[in-house]
Structure formats: C-alpha cells, structure tokens
C-alpha cells in the first residue's frame, strides 16, 4: 500500500520536511496533526505527487506516485471546486479528464452524487451550495474515480459543528466500506482521534513525522461512531464508557502532541 521512506521536501532553499517515513495499509486512516505552517500541506502534496520530494520515495503498491496519479484522490483545502462548473460537472470532470465514456461518466457521477446525498443539488453551482454540500461534492468528485489512496487537507475546517460531525460519520463509514487508505491533515486532535486508525504528529523544523497507534483502538472508534461528542452522555453505561475512552484518548494524543511540538513539560 502507501509506503514513504526518508522523504525530504521543501520550497526554494528551505527544507520543510525531513526523514518522513510512514506505512499505510488498505482501510487504514492516518490523521496528521501539526501546528500551523509546520508542513502538513507540503507533506500531503508530496504524497499526492503534486510536489516532487527532494529525497526518498513515495510509493503506492510498490510504484512511485506521480503528479495526477489515477490511483490517488485528493481533497484540497477549501475543496478546490471549480465555480464555473455545476456540482455534477465538477464530479464528472475527473472521469472526463481520464477519458471515460460519456454514458459511464453520467452513470458514475449520478451514483457518486447519490452516495453523498447531493443528487438533488447536482445542477447548482458551488457558490450556490452550503459549505457542507460543497464538501460533499468534493468527496464525491474524489471517490468517483475509485482511488486506492485518499488524501484530504483539513476537509472539515470550514464547517459548523453539526455539519462537521455528520460528514465525519459519513466519511468514516465510506472509508471503512471501501477499504480506502486515507491520509487526513487536520488541526483538531478530536477529529484525528475520531477518524484516524493512526495519528501522525508533524513536529520540529524541518518537520519530522511521528506516528502513533490511535489509543482509542478500532473497537473504541466503533463505539463512538455516530454519537456526536456533545450527545454522548445519554446515560447508557456503554455510551459513557465510549465517551470516556474517547476523551482519554484525546488527552493522551494532545499530551504527546504537546511534548513533540514543544518538548516535555
């Protein structure tokens, strides 16, 4: 699956990332945390082939990832939807670029819009959609090509809490069902613990990546699934336990993040 070793990348004479290594299997999600400007987006671009690594290798199933690699789906910060295309055209674009037959494009686009629950707004332009709908279009546009690796750059940062939680649940379900390897860049420890099977922390200058197993574990993540953080105290002991382990995991990750980013306190 995704295998990165000794990756170095940067801009001009500035090295942003150094000695980054990670390994991700199908169905696993790596949620990457890091302070602002630490190189999270640079790492994502290097994984997507949008930025050439200066050193090291970025491989998917043993072959290097190149710019516009058909095996990789990318959701950029603020979605990267084209305002001049309707939601449907935005989703269809990835297929059209890859030379799919028109009927195939139509069918697959419709399926993707239905899957994300946005078929009825398919003919609207992105500027006429809510933030949550735009994000659903961006996810549909990426998943329509059935990528093996999904890369997401702060996909939920611009959304309100209710929409964010609903989309996080929908995405988790999709990724699990399709067994897509996913790298997710986020500012939120809660989001990283909720979505990631592993949590990566970018720290230092140039940045290094430290990968932890999610302390919540897959069982804990399943228990928390579908229960928004604010509504987990329903009184049922099982839900309370889930809520407790989730909060404890967030504390563990936050503490580790603090130690790596600022040194032990």
């Amino acid at each position: 699956m995704l295998s990165v070793s000794n990756c170095r990348a940067g801009y001009g004479k500035t090295t942003v990332l150094d000695a980054v290594a990670l390994h991700l299997n199908a169905g696993e999600t790596l949620a990457i945390l890091g302070s602002s400007g630490c190189g999270k987006t640079t790492l994502l671009y290097a994984l997507a082939g949008l930025k050439q690594a200066w050193r090291g290798s970025v491989m998917l199933d043993g072959t290097p990832i190149v710019r516009g690699d058909v095996r990789v789906g990318v959701i950029l910060q603020q979605y990267g939807l084209f305002p001049w295309f309707t939601a449907r055209e935005n989703v269809a674009l990835a297929l059209r670029i890859r030379g799919a037959a028109p009927e195939d494009v139509k069918q697959r686009t419709r399926r993707a819009l239905l899957m994300m629950g946005i078929e009825e707004v398919g003919d609207r332009y992105p500027l006429g959609l809510s933030g949550g709908q735009q994000q659903r279009v961006a996810i549909a546009r990426t998943l329509v090509t059935e990528p093996e690796l999904l890369l997401m750059d702060e996909p939920f940062s611009a959304l309100d809490a209710i929409t964010r939680e609903a989309l996080q649940d929908a995405l988790r379900e999709l990724l699990r069902e399709r067994r897509i390897a996913t790298v997710l860049v986020t500012h939120s420890v809660e989001e990283a613990v909720y979505l990631g099977t592993q949590v990566g922390i970018l720290h230092g200058r140039p940045a290094h990546l430290t990968v932890l197993d999610n302390p919540l574990g897959s069982g804990g993540r399943d228990e928390v699934q579908g229960k928004p953080f604010s509504q987990q105290d329903t009184g049922a002991s099982r839900e309370l336990r889930a809520s407790h382990s989730y909060l404890r995991s967030c504390v563990v990750v936050r503490k580790r993040f603090g130690e790596l980013a600022h040194g032990p306190r």
Binding site: A48, L50, R67, G68, D69, V70, V72, V74, L76, Q77, Q78, G80, L81, F82, L93, A94, I97, R98, R141, T145
Partner: peptide, 16 residues
C-alpha cells in the same frame, strides 16, 4: 493557483 492544483490533482495534463 489552487484551481490549477486542483485540476492537476484530478489527473489533468497541462494541455487540459
């Protein structure tokens, strides 16, 4: 430039 990056991430070439 994000539009060009976005297009590139969809597998487009420069001619697209």
């Amino acid at each position: 430039p994000r539009y060009l990056l976005s297009l590139s991430s969809l597998g487009a070439r420069r001619r697209d």
